[in-house]
């Protein structure tokens, strides 16, 4: 598992009900099932990855979160996870609000477009940034709506979403993000991990 997935898993309560949106091959969900005894579900758009997840004994549905979240009843999960895929949706704001309808809390992780190496590439090279967490070139990236940690904060404020925990990940080290250090964390974090609720 990736370092940041471990951090994410740390935010999940034992025996909780978890929906992993875009669960990929199901490794995170499997980890949570084994170590946190969660009652887990997943949605994944890629058929091969769904098959891999199902073969691990996970309850995963092949589907498009953008269209399919609507079929889940209110507050049916304790946690909804959106692991580095918020930026890939056509309407990330709607997806985020849907997650908070379905689950009491959501954990959202984003690759931070405000990270200094990203900014530097654009400023100095004048090309779209390619980094460890943003490995794509502009013409083949699945990322439609890149944002920075600060952007994420602003959207939460706009939609009256409470950020309960806000964690910065950089070079496999974590630190807390607060209002007071937002500018600097926005510059130094590769990834932001947020526990949010409404």
């Amino acid at each position: 598992m990736r370092f940041e997935d471990d951090v994410l898993a740390g935010l999940i309560d034992i025996n909780s009900r978890v929906l992993d949106v875009g669960c990929g091959d199901g490794n995170l969900l499997l980890h949570l099932k084994k170590n946190k005894k969660v009652d887990g579900r997943g949605i994944e758009i890629d058929q091969k990855k769904v098959q891999e997840s199902v073969a691990k004994g996970l309850a995963v549905i092949e589907g498009d979160a953008e269209k399919d979240l609507i079929s889940y009843p209110n507050s049916s999960f304790d946690f909804a996870i959106l692991n580095q895929s918020l930026q890939q949706f056509y309407d990330p704001r709607k997806v985020m609000n849907e997650l908070l309808r379905i689950a009491k809390k959501a954990i959202i992780t984003i690759p931070n477009f405000g990270y200094w190496k990203v900014r530097l590439q654009l400023v100095l090279r004048g090309t779209m940034p390619v980094t460890k967490n943003l490995p794509y070139t502009w013409y083949n990236t699945p990322n439609l709506h890149m944002c920075t940690i600060k952007d994420f904060y602003n959207l939460c404020r706009l939609d009256n979403i409470t950020i309960e925990k806000s964690i910065s990940v950089s070079s496999d080290k974590i630190s807390n993000i607060q209002r007071g250090n937002l500018e600097i964390k926005n510059l130094l974090s590769e990834i932001g991990i947020f526990l949010i609720k409404k």
Partner: peptide, 8 residues
């Protein structure tokens, strides 16, 4: 809330 997997 049933435990359901689905593949097309």
């Amino acid at each position: 809330g049933a435990e359901v997997s689905f593949v097309e």
